[in-house]
Design a protein around this nucleic acid. Structure first.
Lengths: 246, 246
DNA sequence: CGGACTAACCTGTCTGGACAAGTGGATTTA
DNA sequence: TAAATCCACTTGTCCAGACAGGTTAGTCCG
């Protein structure tokens, strides 16, 4: 069973969605909420901290919290798995394997996956589809740790992430680099766009709860397929702008 | 003076940066840290919660925290202000005004800025430069609330964000939509790239501590100028993937 | 009428304590 | 030897209370 503060956070989220607490209006005070839910003020603070972090409410010392709005109901798992995301949105995800191979890690791969140069690495290239339409070219790299599991999977079917999760390799952290690139001739052909067409590239590292890198992936989306949304605030900022040249 | 837990968070961050707590190793237990800093366990938890949220350490119930790594030292203010970001990285930011006008809000502008159709809106177009090299085309929209201040500013000089902050209009929240687009003929000419060249577009809404929208901006970067970095985790996810068509 | 002041209210910070629940290593058992 | 058990340790959750410090609205005064 979820913790009490999580239940309360969920109820507050729901209330905001239902319009019970309209955008721009004030949330009840911590004291009121504590009385209403029959919990201590500390527990209420844990609950509203969740909403603050999501960017759903704004807090200022001395003043009651302001409702900023609902926030995309989009779990971490949906962000880390193309298949889960597509499915939850009513689309049919698909994958076509272009190549799979096991090889010795090159310098860059070793750096990304925090392994040694020469260690085993699985390299996988796939086209990802949404309702049979190609929208993304995926180049993934997996460390030796999960190599045998990857090779044993049906790579055209569901999500690798989900299958690894079932095996105990849970994605717990993500680190994403987002930029725009030109479609190469190959990518253009695979995605059905013109060469040089803009692609939204998301390169990301997934790690386990203990910080162990589980996968590095370079996902290039057709520019008309997806938009990435990020929220930040003075009290919760995980967003940075990096120089491309360095 | 900053709160004690913030000081401790800062010291821990520093210790990680210095290699005192190496990547992949364990952080001391909450009890140890509480004793070391002579504070209660609750205060230590507040401190490490900051690092967890940044994605700098990983936490699991029952096990000590694992150091994931340093994280870009990039404040919220640096993300919200091109000038501050450039300056802090040793570059010289610049701006060339293409147009400024005050007009009646159209439907989309009103929606974004949470004002009524027909209300005053300031529309501003600028080219932003880094060391005199054009890297971004900026289209900004400001609500009537700050209109007079915007019009009174030197728009070619420093940061509008900083000037507004000095006037009491502080950016406290950001909501960002990131995608890739093709450079129009005009944009290509302004940025010195070929027409159709990929641009990284960041459309974002900045709001005050009370949730009042302060600015909406559409920033299109040369694809070779910037990369956006976001970290997320199971316990702190502010990242979502949206369908471009909707 | 406008500005300064005040009091009620509210969130931020911190303490100390208690128990639940998960981890990991050592020990015992089959 | 391999599996099950146990135990010390550690983090997660929740409570009650105290005080600091910011906000807000009303009141009083010039």
């Amino acid at each position: 069973m979820a913790a009490r503060y999580q239940q309360i956070a969920q109820e507050l989220r729901e209330a905001i969605r239902q319009g019970e607490y309209a955008i721009g209006t004030l949330l009840p005070s911590e004291g009121d909420l504590a009385a209403r839910y029959a919990v201590s003020r500390g527990t209420v603070r844990q609950a509203v901290a969740v909403l603050e972090q999501d960017g759903s409410v704004a807090a200022r010392q001395g003043a009651r919290r302001v409702v900023l709005g609902e926030v995309p109901t989009h779990s971490f798992a949906e962000m880390q798995s193309f298949s889960m995301w597509a499915t939850s949105r009513g689309h049919v995800p698909g994958a076509k394997v272009l190549s799979v191979e096991v090889g010795a890690a090159r310098q860059e791969e070793a750096d990304r996956l925090r392994i040694n140069v020469g260690d085993d690495v699985v390299r996988l290239q796939r086209i990802r589809t949404l309702d049979d339409e190609p929208v993304m070219v995926e180049r993934s790299f997996f460390p030796g740790l999960v190599a045998e599991h990857i090779l044993a999977m049906d790579l055209t079917a569901g999500s690798i992430t989900e299958q690894l999760t079932a095996l105990g390799f849970v994605h717990a952290h993500g680190d994403h680099l987002i930029d725009a690139v030109s479609a190469t001739t190959l990518e253009a052909r695979l995605l059905g766009v013109r060469r040089g067409s803009p692609l939204l590239r998301q390169r990301w590292l997934a790690s386990s709860p203990t910080g162990q890198p589980l996968a590095w992936s370079e996902d290039s989306y057709r520019h008309d397929a997806v938009i990435i949304n990020v929220r930040n605030s003075m009290s919760a900022n995980t967003l940075a702008r990096l120089s491309a040249r360095s």
